[in-house]
Design a binder for these strands. Structure first.
Lengths: 344, 344
DNA sequence: TCAGCGCATGAAACCGCAATCATCACGAAT
DNA sequence: ATTCGTGATGATTGCGGTTTCATGCGCTGA
């Protein structure tokens, strides 16, 4: 009665590792090759065969092994993205459209944070290259020499974003940080501000923006432009740095240029806490035009960079290169706009 | 086979595709196997050989092909992470420590956004499974049946985060959203507020928090708790929803519970714009304890969830499972804390 | 009637590495 | 002297696909 338990489980080789095309094919009465074709180009397989294969796939729950596919076809269908920090909305908001654009073409994103250290970036690039991505996105244009060498040697499309350079590794989509700093200085001058100060986060690009602002405004106004610095670019830092400017650096009023909207919002809060009116006693300019810029009171005058367009353009440039051709241009300057609101 | 020493340049095929271990070995006078060993366990190779191999690697710029390695070893050294949105700091700030923890063990992150749609999530899970990740992180505990099936069939460690369930797919690290809503209601009651309202973003977990709050507070106070809803959880939405509560829903004062700190900040801004004092005329409670919560004026009373610890714990739980054993616990409730500041 | 052709399919050769087992030289133990 | 590790290395196999080339077959046109 209970003879269902066969004592010879020997021939019963239930593939202990996942289902393969081989197994699907066996079940559908075709070879592995035909299964492969069925998935990559159904038009090359007869409708009846196709149906049986589909059935077998459904029954077995087969999921193709993309690693094997990548090895054989030399196309990983992965794109690496290296950003300094994903918790920083500025990078995250570029990444989202970048990723979406690529996803629609079947690519997946291999993401890493690199911090702001070129050496760490180099190590990360190497780790990513070992996965043979079909393209790579890097943030910024300053890299360790080794990074450049590896990337050039790997013969893979590369796009550097969020900055501009005359000598990109391959492609570049960004804007000039120095120009954005000068634009704020121009605005300050034209709006009639006589004195100014700066508040700057630690990263290299923020410093370039503020340096350009300070130099430009300083030159045209003939005044000293004090710049307070911080490593962390949060609200608390913005508050603290305005306090520093006023209490320790003798800043008595004028325009405060900040390297980010968050810092600028911190300045607004500290100003309110001190009973200073904005823009009466103190004018504030931010950078980034994050959502908060339009929502705070008073509205924040700031530099807008179309981050979504930037991310999308970066993806499209890479796709163009992958598709074989050269994109229409290697360098894309997406520019920036000064958005004037109430704070300055 | 014996024609390797053939001087005819015809058969001499300068490998046009990247450098391989084979090539490195040839240059170092050893076999491919030895190169493989040199990289995976240097102690198994003699020092002199090691030196020659290193030299050859440096000269050729060899970068091992992790795809091939993964295929052969059945370990991809990749971990999938699926989050609703990377531009939402709440998810991004879990992801950062999660990724860091795994990176230190040699894993890389395959990231995708899934939005808030279970079907999209299922498709994304399938795409990720095809890459044979060594582990998977999912956000939330509500998934399409197909997702569950695929995941169980794939026999891969899975951790669901940012929520709790009694029936996890595998592991779960999170907290109870309903409990957090009730905690706010308890607080409101104990602090003596007689009336309350809610402001709620569109995602399912936010709604569960606010529903629990409204029910709990409504029951104990015997009042109706109006809840205004939005799809986008930004500052502007917070402002608009407070306006809606006051202008259209007859809300005249009391405590406003918000499903996120950002919405709460919007409420603060709108309140200020209307000349309402906080917490005098209006008390505000947020959720998340983002950086802004401590920095705004007045400081925001909110629910803190240790997102960094959560991300780290998720990573560690997965690593424990990968290492073969069962983690000490399948379900980890990281809890939450109500942080009282000036806004309520 | 038969070469010719397109279609559906299969066989075989990789892709680049890791895992397994075999080989070899050399010194210690018997 | 023979045996037996032991450390260093190589040959072989196969992971699960893609690609290329070969095959069988029914049908068309001269």
């Amino acid at each position: 009665m209970s003879q269902s338990d066969d004592p010879t489980p020997i021939s019963r080789k239930r593939n202990p590792r996942g289902v393969t095309m081989e197994a699907v094919g066996r079940m559908a009465g075709v070879s592995q090759v035909t299964v492969s074709r069925a998935l990559s180009d159904p038009s090359k397989v007869s409708p009846e065969t196709m149906a049986r294969i589909r059935e077998a796939i459904a029954v077995t729950g087969f999921v193709p092994n993309a690693l094997a596919g990548a090895l054989a076809s030399r196309k990983s269908m992965m794109v690496s993205a290296l950003v300094p920090s994903i918790t920083n909305i500025v990078y995250a908001s570029m990444l989202a459209p970048f990723s979406e654009e690529l996803k629609s073409r079947g690519y997946q994103i291999l993401l890493s944070e690199t911090g702001f250290d070129p050496e760490e970036e180099a190590a990360t690039v190497e780790a990513h290259l070992s996965r043979r991505p079909d393209a790579i996105l890097l943030t910024g244009v300053h890299h360790a020499p080794r990074t450049r060498r590896m990337l050039l040697g790997a013969d893979v499309p590369v796009v550097e974003v969020w900055d501009m350079t005359e000598t990109p590794i391959d492609l570049c989509v960004g804007f000039s940080h120095a120009a954005s700093g000068r634009a704020v200085a121009d605005f300050a001058r034209e709006a009639g501000y006589r004195r100014a100060a700066g508040i700057c986060a630690g990263d290299e690009r923020a410093q370039r923006r503020l340096a350009a602002f300070a130099e430009s405004f300083g030159q045209s106004s003939g005044t000293e432009v004090p710049v307070a610095r911080t490593t962390r670019g949060n609200l608390a830092a913005g508050r603290a740095l305005l306090a520093e400017l006023i209490d320790e650096r003798g800043f008595t009023g004028g325009l405060v240029a900040c390297s980010s909207d968050v810092l600028a919002q911190g300045v607004l809060i500290e100003a309110a806490a001190r009973g200073l009116s904005v823009p009466g006693d103190l004018a504030v300019v931010g950078f980034g035009d994050q959502e908060l810029a339009a929502a705070v009171e008073p509205g924040l005058t700031t530099i807008r960079v179309n981050r979504e367009a930037l991310g999308r353009a970066a993806a499209q440039a890479l796709l163009a290169r992958i598709d074989g051709g050269n994109p229409s241009q290697d360098l894309i300057d997406v520019g920036f706009t000064l958005i004037r609101r109430a704070s300055a």
